[in-house]
């Protein structure tokens, strides 16, 4: 592995399927030991990007280096240095837990003397002690995911690609899974993990927001919140919500207004309305409103803001 450069580097990475562009000139730089989150809706191009980085899909344009190796020209060298967990569960259901581990240990040529210890580690990590001889298809979702992770790290790869590892897994199992990811990162493993759960983005060192094949923003969660919102976010209880939304759409200084549960989230830019005048403005227009309250934006707010601006820009 090339020790100098970043773990993952993509420049103008593009993938077209006939006339559909799944990934559109993506630039990415992920340093060693980072947990990088790929966040975006389904169909944003997350899986396609990860597959290109694993050498499973050929880039239509641009290039990418993983562990210093070109994914298009040296895919086998890339594969020696990575672990990959595909979005769809893809271990052998008709093999037992132990047999799956043994198989992937063989594929990665894990030294025989290390196999016992690595297998034990993977089984403990996945919480599968006592189920070593169960057929994998009989396991529940969370166990399957952790076993898949166990298979992907048997050979101690320096870089790990996890494609929506927690989708369809119950919340408790999701939390456990993220604990495992943090343990691996603490050992120096670089991890690129995609998810469409916004709350999971907070677990990452840095996030890349992806929409329609484009990198919309990249940074730490707090950087993204402060840098990309372009204003301050207020929460206001009011009724009726629909009328309030209507009123605020065209109000001065309002960048964005959205229903958030039983209240409104309103993004205010400089000039126009502010926290003191907001509820008064609503009352004037016949909406009952309480005082506005400044809230910390969630990444979801950031994402909604970025993506809507992006789409308007395109239109």
């Amino acid at each position: 592995m090339n020790t100098a450069g970043p773990a993952i580097l993509a420049e103008g990475l593009t993938k077209r399927f006939e006339d559909f562009t799944a990934v559109d000139h993506l630039d990415l730089r992920i340093e060693k030991g980072e947990i990088a989150g790929f966040i975006g809706p389904n169909g944003a191009g997350k899986s396609t990007t990860i597959r290109m980085l694993c050498g499973l899909l050929r880039p239509s344009e641009g290039r990418a280096l993983v562990a210093g190796f070109d994914v298009d020209r040296e895919p086998e060298a890339v594969r020696e240095h990575i672990g990959y967990m595909s979005q769809k569960f893809s271990l052998y259901g008709d093999l037992t837990v132990r047999e799956n581990l043994r198989f992937f240990g063989g594929m990665y040529r894990v030294a025989r003397k290390d196999m016992g210890e690595r297998t034990r580690f993977a089984i403990t990590m996945a919480g599968l002690s006592g189920r070593e001889d169960a057929l994998v298809r009989t396991l529940a979702g969370g166990w399957k995911q952790r076993l898949a992770l166990g298979c992907a790290i048997l050979h101690r790869p320096p870089i790990l690609f996890l494609d929506e590892p927690t989708s369809g897994v119950e919340p408790e199992a999701r939390r456990r899974f993220w604990d495992l990811i943090h343990d691996l990162a603490a050992d120096g493993v670089t991890i690129l993990v995609s998810t469409h759960y916004m709350d999971e983005a907070e677990y990452c060192n840095r996030i890349a927001l992806i929409d329609r094949g484009r990198l919309v923003a990249m940074g730490t969660p707090s950087q993204l919140r402060s840098r990309h919102l372009g204003g301050r976010l207020f929460e206001i209880r009011c009724a009726p919500l629909g009328a309030a939304l209507q009123v605020l759409r065209d109000a001065p200084g309002v960048l964005e207004a959205a229903i958030f549960g039983d209240r409104l989230h309103v993004l205010l830019g400089p000039g126009g309305l502010d926290e003191t005048t907001l509820s008064g403005f609503l009352e004037e227009h016949g909406v009952k409103a309480q005082a506005a309250r400044l809230v910390t934006a969630s990444l979801e707010d950031v994402f909604v803001q970025l993506v809507s601006g992006h789409h308007e820009g395109q239109a």
Partner: peptide
């Protein structure tokens, strides 16, 4: 069965 994707991500020839 979808197992191919995992298989070809390994260095097997």
């Amino acid at each position: 069965r979808g197992t191919m994707e995992q298989l070809i991500s390994t260095p097997v020839t």
